[in-house]
Amino acid sequence: MTPLPTATLGGDRKRSIEQITLLLFITIPFVALAAAVPLAWGWGVSWLDLGLMTFMYFLGCHGITIGFHRHFTHRSFKARRPLRIALAIAGSMAVEGPLVRWVADHRKHHKYSDAEGDPHSPWRFGETVPALMKGLWWAHIGWMFDEEQTPQHKYAPDLIRDPALRRISRQFWVWTLVSLLIPPVVGGLVTWSWTGALTAFFWGSLVRVALLHHVTWSINSICHAVGKRPFTSRDRSGNVWWLAVLSCGESWHNLHHADPTSARHGVMRGQIDSSARIIRWFEMLGWASDVRWPSANRVASRRRPAAGDGNSREVGTAETA
């Protein structure tokens, strides 16, 4: 065989002390960040800064959710070559690591989800409050500093074999620079001032990347510790509604682990999933094909018996994705 090129337990108890502790861990930083915007209004942030931050945030977020996650990792749909390249670049601009490494880590996570071998399970150290706090930190950030590396040739050989994708993965630092420089360049040109460039860099680059990182990491940590579990999965993945918009639909995590190849994660009425909506637009434009939309029967077959969440009949279909 031709060698590959070099590549780059918690229940549903409500208000338990474990859940309260975990929620405080993730909520307080977000509250502090939200408070920074009105406090800075008038001297440190402008509508242009917020516009750049929002645009760059959702560009990178959808690059990760649609590109790195649903397309490259789980093959939820097929993409025409130009879209495939665009998704790889957009995901790289989220500054969450090279494409091949990201996909390899995530595929390993699904293989061993919340069990021995999972790169970032919050249950790694046990179920006591101290153990959960340690595990949450590990799942959120700590695992990325672990010496153990996921073998990319084993978990992402398909991406390594693609010269264009391998190049984009190797050039991760280039897309990081592009991602960080777009806001200050636009801010400086629009305001024609160094101050405009500086504030755009702070909000559109630094704050945006920090927020996106913590939202993405929260899928690893908080969504495997708390949340409703209406679907049967072999791990502790849960749905966390208040992260749905910021995570572009990724926080409907229970269905994702119950049916990983589904192109839509928010399958119940009212579950916002902007990534699924955009994939639907790609399909309508002819840019995406063979989309694995969840049928009502497929979703129903994965429901947990007597889940008691009251949403048994509120299942979405491909037509409402």
Rank of each mutant, 00 (worst) to 15 (best):
Y112H: 13
K78C: 14
F68R: 11
E96C: 02
F77M: 01
L24E: 11
A104R: 10
G97S: 04
R70P: 02
C61H: 10
A32G: 15
E96N: 06
F55L: 13
D114C: 01
M53Y: 06
I20T: 15
L59R: 08
G51S: 10
D105A: 12
W47D: 10
W102V: 01
W47H: 14
D114Q: 02
V31H: 09
W102T: 06
R81H: 13
G60P: 10
M53T: 00
I85R: 03
A34M: 04
L24V: 08
R80Y: 15
F72H: 10
V37F: 12
H109A: 08
I89K: 00
D49M: 11
V100T: 07
L99Q: 05
P82V: 05
S113W: 03
F58K: 00
P29V: 02
P38I: 11
A86F: 11
I20Y: 14
I26K: 06
W47I: 15
V31Q: 10
F30W: 13
K108Q: 15
G51A: 04
D114P: 08
L22F: 13
I64M: 06
A35M: 12
M53I: 07
F30V: 12
L59C: 12
L99V: 08
R70A: 09
G42Y: 10
D49W: 12
F72Q: 05
S113I: 03
L52N: 03
I28E: 04
V31D: 08
M56L: 09
D105Q: 13
F58E: 01
